[in-house]
């Protein structure tokens, strides 16, 4: 890794990625809670394979957490120009 994790550019970039992905997950999670509370019968809709929407959405939320986490790791491992360890120490 050619950038330093404590460098403000890196910290700032990672925080921004984190917040964007967090917002995506909040939307997914909020959608699930909304359907469960205000459109409960919709959760009984049968999806391909024979399970209902409640199970499919629940599994999708667990899968989405892992997928977004992997995306975050990949994004955060990309180098940031002018963010070497020396640069971080100078700052």
């Amino acid at each position: 890794m050619d950038h330093h994790e404590d460098h403000p550019h890196v910290v700032n970039r990672n925080a921004r990625y984190g917040l964007i992905l967090f917002a995506v997950y909040v939307a997914l999670y909020g959608g699930f809670v909304f359907l469960a509370v205000f459109r409960t019968p919709v959760m009984g809709t049968i999806v391909p394979g024979g399970a209902n929407l409640a199970i499919a959405y629940g599994f999708a939320l667990i899968g989405a957490a892992l997928l977004l986490a992997l995306v975050y790791v990949v994004l955060c491992s990309r180098p940031v120009p002018n963010a070497s360890k020396n640069d971080a120490e100078i700052r």
């Binding site: 994790e5 990672n14 925080a15 992905l21 967090f22 997950y25 699930f32 199970i55 667990i62 975050y72």
Partner: peptide
């Protein structure tokens, strides 16, 4: 299973907001 979903979702907050700081 709603507990499973809620407990797991909390880890998203941990990773994206809390872990590195």
């Amino acid at each position: 299973f709603l507990y499973s979903i809620g407990y797991l979702a909390g880890w998203v907050v941990a990773l994206f907001v809390i872990a590195e700081p």
